[in-house]
Design a protein around this nucleic acid. Structure first.
Lengths: 205, 205, 205, 205
DNA sequence: TATGAATGAGATTTCATTCAT
DNA sequence: AATGAATGAAATCTCATTCAT
């Protein structure tokens, strides 16, 4: 049986050099992606930044989407870990403080990985692998919040819906500030997000 | 050699038939943008939906971007009008009810014009005309909220930042629901958004 | 929306194969321009003659105009060299003979590069880069002639204007003959041009 | 036999209004043609200048080429008349003076109709109607000159070839000056052309 | 493992010409 | 006699992906 030309980017054993090249491509992807957005990013841009060639790109990734996917997997892991660290919600000032600290963490992570995160959304079609990944990660976030809200025993509010709304807020507000669409004095954003979230959960009491 | 174009799609006097065609193209644009997203939409799709020819398209718009811009201007007007109708915020249940009604209105408008609205953000680069348009409209929204928050005399919260966060939430939550990224029992979303917004403003008291 | 091109056909380091392809495209360009004229020539024709693809064309030239420009630079060099070889004008028969030899050279060069030369003029608008290139080369020619005419001490004639007229004659007459607009028994043209030029300079004496 | 839709621009009986429109289109053609060159001129430009519509254009001319042809016929008539007025060539100063006067006439005509004249040449392909027209007119010119040269009894020069060269010179030199490719103090050009022509015919003697 | 070169399908845009009123 | 609108064939240009060395 004549072996078909070996599948381009089928996972192979990589030696040190290969791993380094792959890493360079991933970094370049993140950079270009951040600069131009997912749609506008061209393979040509990426290989230029990675200082390598088109041919090499397809040695490591079957296509553009796969590179994005690889990038997304990395980010997804970090996000899920962060979701796991969401503090318990208590009505006292300590509850606000804990939330505030967490919001700072989120902001830092978002600053580093925002472009990739946003790609999940830009890829509007939920049916794609990217879209599904986004859904999964967002679910982790939402579930963490839902759990905390339920634990407070707050009533008069749908915990799932509220969690969704708050997650949406946290992501988008960071996005606006990060892309400079609105100016934000340093540190005001996490504080505000913490306050609003807290108020949403205990405000009706 | 590319003959210098004289003046493509320069605004002309249009008779009834021409106006109708232009309108058909705008509608088709909205449809296709909604289905495929702004980036993926091809002129070819649009003219197919409008049941006309490529040539005709360029009779009315210099390019895809211009059609999008025209669409955006329409939507921007509607959004600003809606922002102007934001009710006063009062701490009593009537305040929540008024907000709830407004959130329904927003949801309806968003369902109709969401793709165009989102494209403002997809077009991340703030420097572009599109980006500016988005900024301006968002400012109208935020300002309306800021004013209402200030009027409540609520302290301990930065009104501008809070308004920004809430606007972010309102837009994104609608987006998630609309694109089916999360399921939402009918009508729960506006209610939740109203509650969270209300809680954010009066929760700290 | 037209993604901003990064840098099309930016001069790259080319290896042997690339250089060969580029050369093939230049040759094909010359051929097609000669057959169809510069305006009528389509990129499609050129790549067909060069036996390559559209994509490849744009790997080497940003557009048709740039290919033409590259071609023009080559020809301009040859023409300037030829201008430099214009013999001194002497009133005796040897002067005519020298001129005659030179006219033959011109004819040969023109036969090879005529279409490109003529395109400078077709591109009537003097303001363009192309137009300027034509002007510069023609100036080299004219200056060479002016110098020779002045050296003869011939009076009663404006050397600059006379040179211009003679250059015009030499170019156009070759053009008429080359395009078959007039039939010319072999070799009559250079002889006649030499005679007329000679007569123009010494005829008034 | 069902009458076919009457041939668009078949010569029809035109009333005053129709004639005026046709005239306006011809004038507009000349204008646009002069501004942009034959190739770049678009029907759209012409009808804009003529302040009429596309539909109307095709009421009077079957296509763009036909308009140019009509324009050319006008000019051709004037050129042939001018050729007929070429003075006899005499070796004395009076011969130069007569030539000089004639060159002035040519210059004036060329200034008015140059763009159309040049179109004959731009339309390089001799096979076209336009190309043939050019040939015929140029032949008239050349023949007039040939006759005059023969009449002088000058020998050592091929009259046909010399005439061709001189006609080429006269046309192109005027072209260079008219398009501003070379600066010419007022009136120097005709004088120089007269001198060179005269020298060419009698110089060898 | 790397890469320069090539490819071609697909998207955009132009403009002479025709149509319907 | 006039015109606004429509058409579609052709041309240009882009870029993800594959090939050959």
């Amino acid at each position: 049986m004549p072996a078909r030309r070996s599948d381009p980017a089928a996972p192979r054993e990589l030696r040190a050099r290969g791993l380094a090249t792959r890493e360079r491509l991933l970094d370049a992807g993140a950079t270009v992606f951040a600069q131009r957005g997912v749609h506008a990013a061209r393979v040509d841009d990426i290989v230029k930044v990675a200082a390598t060639s088109h041919g090499t790109f397809y040695l490591y990734f079957a296509n553009k989407e796969e590179l994005f996917h690889a990038l997304a997997e990395q980010v997804a892991g970090e996000l899920e870990a962060l979701a796991g660290r969401l503090p318990p919600l208590t009505p006292d000032p300590a509850g606000v403080a804990a939330l505030d600290a967490w919001m700072r963490e989120f902001g830092a992570l978002y600053a580093r990985t925002g472009p990739v995160i946003r790609a999940w959304t830009e890829t509007e079609m939920v049916a794609t692998a990217m879209g599904r990944l986004g859904t999964v990660v967002w679910a982790a976030f939402t579930n963490a919040l839902v759990e905390r809200i339920r634990a407070t025993g707050a009533d008069g509010i749908d915990p799932v819906m509220a969690a969704l709304a708050l997650v949406a807020m946290i992501e988008r507000a960071n996005y606006y500030v990060l892309t400079g669409q609105v100016p934000a004095p340093d540190g005001t954003l996490p504080a505000t997000l913490a306050r609003v979230t807290h108020g949403a959960v205990f405000g009706g009491a």
